[in-house]
Design a binder for these strands. Structure first.
Lengths: 341, 341
DNA sequence: GCAAACTGAGAAAACGATTTCTAATTCTCA
DNA sequence: TGAGAATTAGAAATCGTTTTCTCAGTTTGC
């Protein structure tokens, strides 16, 4: 039993295919009687329009491409959900791909997107993206929105969070609580997020007249293991820090383990503030103080930018910066220290 | 600049469109010289076949639908990844939808899938799915694979984990460590996963000749808050349990918080085993003993079943049951107790 | 050496919608 | 009442592929 086509509906309702199409697309030039007859026929037959055919003839596709760099990072889950919800409201579907921080895989998926003739593309470019592919697609008229990270090789719409401001608020909070020797475990400086969070850390120290101490700075790779290793290094040093700002969620988990294994207590022996608030952050031991990112909004906003670009292809590029929020729990020691500001 | 079409390639290579199509589909009946000429032309023009047109004409679509019930549950992330990877190897793309445990949203997405004319559908049906839609689609010839959960309203291929065995192993482990008063915080008994994990708990007690004590059984809804509330209830009772088996990841987080807030220690005052091992399980305090599910495999296996059904539509239905593994860390007290088996 | 079988590749017909023409009505107003 | 405008809906072209049909040219079998 093949699925009913528009022609079947037309035959059943005894009208032409064009009329059925008009009803389908809410063309007002169709008589109410006929309209009802066609709708009745569609119901009777359980008709669903074939998207492939529609896309082939119509100029606008209703599929939207989303390429993220690491589906296993919980950060992206909520982003995906934001994109999906916003797209659904526009009756668009989302094709999701995962580049795994692998430039080869990314370029493969870019080709798939091109072949799919997607209406637009939302992408968190991989680590060190030097490829010209994105720029070429953009020049060829494909609406593109950069998500979370930016890349030097492409001028385009982008939606990012205020990494500098978020990191600044976190470190400033530690300073206001009276900590002076504040270390950081930063992310890769090849990613804009890594650079910016480090910059926030630097500015916060500067704003309080504190020196930038090389021995308190460690650079990781956003994975659990590097957080563990770098935290051990920091705490084993002759003159360990009083507090640490960790620049992402997974490295924070590794840091916690290191502290516990060394038999130290948080925040009494060392205070901790993380970047990225997760559903389980409040259930860690101790509950984690962290910079919350508007991940869901990030996704929604990306779709909004994409739609704007589709309708106004020549508008100036926008970069939307979403604000973060510091969620204070116990790992920073706010409850046990006097705020000295 | 419109994208080049097959016709453009044909003109450029001075052959017919049919020949280009044959080259594209590796039809061996085309002469090597022509083949090279066509491939060269495709390169020159940067040609990418239009999937919409291809899907329209061809009988087989290369899009695979995936409907999950809660994208915010970390459990599904790895499942999605498994599906995606397996699909990619078959050069298929995945359209991902999130029903949010909402039957209305699920039925909406089912219609989208039907309209997309997807090659097949992998679905974790929502809570209490009584709809006939799935059964109808199945009867209409759509290959369908049930994921993680089953539903009474449809006989179809399914891939699930051995919930009974996993729960049994977890509780049996507690028994072997010498615990006798073992409680459970179970999931909704409307879901097959909830029922089966409870059944594993029951069987483990029975196998050791322990009574099923109503006061030690609590039923939650798989959310953090219910884990928190139910654990407080259990521990405030006049005769609290020595150990607790919690039937999902989020409720486990809530349970941990409850124990900590009440000033009790794990595993000294109460031991804990969870269901579903997560990347952060080892970094909780204390590191969590949990039943690990082969989530990635779950996804891969679902794709495999789907492809088999596409090629052999009339084969008998299979249910693939994947085994779990108990990951022993510290929350069960294995390190501090003598195993008495 | 002639009929039959095989090869390779073009012409043309699908696929299921949308959209542009176009023609048949109905309406409007002098 | 009749000419022109407005409305309504059908016929046919179109989108970019795949697939079937066809046919010329070549090979094979006896």
């Amino acid at each position: 039993m093949p699925a009913p086509t528009l022609k079947d509906v037309a035959d059943y309702a005894q009208v032409s295919r064009a009329t059925v199409s008009r009803v389908l697309n809410n063309n007002p030039t169709v008589n109410e009687n006929l309209r009802l007859r066609v709708i009745e026929a569609m119901h009777q037959l359980g008709y669903q329009p074939n998207r492939a055919a529609r896309r082939l003839r119509g100029t606008t596709s209703d599929v939207l491409g989303l390429i993220i760099s690491d589906i296993e990072n919980p950060f992206f889950i909520s982003v995906v959900r934001g994109v999906e919800d916003a797209a659904y409201q526009q009756r668009m579907s989302v094709v999701l791909c995962n580049s795994d921080e692998d430039p080869a895989k990314q370029s493969m998926y870019l080709r798939v997107m091109q072949a799919e003739r997607v209406a637009g593309l939302i992408i968190a470019p991989t680590h060190a993206d030097e490829s010209q592919e994105l720029a070429e697609m953009s020049r060829a008229g494909m609406p593109i929105v950069l998500l979370d990270r930016r890349t030097s090789s492409l001028n385009a719409d982008a939606v990012v969070v205020d990494n500098v401001g978020g990191a600044f608020a976190a470190v400033r909070h530690l300073i206001d609580l009276g900590y002076r020797r504040i270390a950081t475990i930063s992310g890769s400086l090849k990613l804009t997020t890594g650079q910016e969070r480090f910059e926030g850390y630097r500015q916060a120290l500067e704003s309080a007249g504190l020196p930038l101490d090389r021995t308190l700075i460690r650079t990781g790779d956003y994975k659990i293991e590097s957080g563990y290793r770098l935290m051990r290094e920091l705490l084993s040093a002759p003159h360990p820090p009083e507090a640490v700002f960790v620049a992402n969620n997974l490295m924070t988990l590794g840091s916690l383990r290191a502290v516990h294994e060394m038999g130290l207590r948080i925040p009494h022996d060392v205070a901790l503030v993380g970047f990225d608030d997760m559903p389980w952050s409040g259930q860690l031991y101790p509950p984690l103080t962290a910079v919350a990112q508007p991940t869901y909004e990030l996704g929604r906003e990306a779709v909004r930018l994409l739609l704007r670009r589709s309708t106004e292809p020549d508008a100036f590029f926008h970069t939307v910066v979403l604000q973060t929020r510091l969620v204070v729990r116990e790992s920073c020691g706010a409850a046990i220290r006097q705020e000295k500001s």
